[in-house]
Design a protein around this nucleic acid. Structure first.
Lengths: 250, 250
DNA sequence: GTATCTGTCGATACAGTGTATCGATGAGTA
DNA sequence: TACTCATCGATACACTGTATCGACAGATAC
């Protein structure tokens, strides 16, 4: 988000990060509130109406509180978004923990990527948050740790830098692929509700563009495409990435 | 952005997409304006002050025009962002066109990915726009076409779906990697200006977290990392991806 | 029990956002 | 010259994130 700064005075940001800053003691005066309840309210709001619907006012209203009440628990809206991302990372960590243990680095990383995708399908806004800011919360570190530990089991990735590079590659692919899948899903949903728009604008637009002959390769693909379902498309790319990682020779 | 809709009346969006909708004839009455000038103004604004600084009012002000003047050329701010992304795709297409012709699919795709990264380093906001919405402008289609044509030269990618999948994988990796690199660069810049903050908050935070012993793999990596420069880190991941694509056997 | 202190809550305010509306204003035509 | 008509942009509206600060409540001192 990166909105307005919070004071330009000496201390440019709170000295501690949101994940370990203590909550204010919840006094039962107006209504019991907590960082967790705030984040949960924001998440349901985002799940149902999209990330744009998450405004300080709306989240506060969902908790029967005034807008400024939240600023006792957060110091910025960006921190709320960070906490939302953390919550999803916690879901991913949970899914990882419930996986059957696998000695193979590849099945672990494969599951890892799919858990991320599943989480993004549950919470579409996660895709937008994924690469926007570094995620350093405890749950995010947990998932990162699991991925690194799995990668380290690959004989070719004994070197720390190599392992880090491999996990980074996997993360980059997953984030990019998921974001695009969500973007397409959103576009289809938006133009699918009143489907007439697709048929009257972007469909014809594309056919017109392809008819110019300037995009022969695209035209060839579009002509002969079977358009596999998103899950297998994701898996195909994932296989490429894992194949590439597997190809590393110590 | 996905802000407010523009009228909820019968036609939910303009029937034609922004890339082929004709501009209003420029009358020299107050000042010559054009979609191109608007986009350029928005781009310099975004380059210097970030994407958040691109507001209809500020762009209009940079062109000595009132805010509503722009809505003769665009029908939504999202369209402005689409046009900005298109402009960057045009830069990428230009860079591709100036590359020495290579028969090898791999060197072409390698160059492709690096051109995208270079463009994102020139225009950091591009990384945020990259996966957020489908890009269907002429320049975006041109770069896609070039990538698909290159992929088709790989004997294992004769099948259209396979070629599309490979290019999609490359795109997903590039988008994800670039976005993360930009996010890190931004974070470092933000906390590097008054570097004291890094040293007083996120640095100690991380050491505290790693000291808990809950993230042994992360700790091991951090301890023994050489932290390669971003360009070679990107290239390492790219090599993984291209290796994976190369592994496809028709 | 009263008075004072202290800290928190949240109403109000401010500067900004995207965009709908519509009166004024100008150019083009008869 | 008179009329028409499209366009420009000032104004307005509903919204955003967050700074400010008066009022109020709980704790402490006497």
């Amino acid at each position: 988000m990166t909105t307005r700064r919070r004071t330009d005075t000496p201390e440019p940001e709170p000295a501690t990060l949101i994940w370990e800053r203590p909550e204010p003691a919840e006094r039962p005066s107006p209504a019991p509130l907590s960082r967790d309840r705030i984040v949960r309210a924001a998440m349901t709001l985002a799940d149902t109406d999209g990330l744009d619907a998450v405004s300080v006012r709306k989240v506060a209203a969902a908790l029967d509180a005034g807008p400024m009440r939240l600023y006792g628990y957060l110091s910025t809206k960006d921190e709320l978004l960070d906490l939302m991302a953390e919550a999803v990372h916690a879901e991913i960590a949970d899914a990882l923990a419930h996986d059957p243990p696998a000695a193979d680095w590849r099945t672990t990383l494969h599951a890892h990527a799919h858990h991320m995708r599943d989480a993004a399908l549950r919470h579409e806004w996660f895709a937008d948050l994924l690469g926007g800011r570094p995620h350093l919360g405890p749950a995010a570190l947990t998932t990162l740790d699991a991925a690194l530990a799995a990668a380290a089991r690959h004989p070719g990735l004994a070197d720390p830098d190599a392992a880090f590079g491999a996990v980074g590659t996997l993360h980059a692919y997953t984030a990019g692929a998921v974001r695009r899948e969500i973007a397409e899903r959103r576009a289809h949903r938006a133009t699918g509700l009143d489907k007439r728009q697709w048929q009257t604008s972007v469909g014809p637009y594309l056919t017109r563009m392809l008819a110019t002959g300037r995009y022969p390769a695209v035209a060839r693909i579009v002509a002969g495409a079977k358009t596999p379902d998103p899950a297998t498309a994701f898996d195909t790319g994932l296989r490429h990435v894992l194949d590439g990682i597997a190809a590393v020779t110590g």
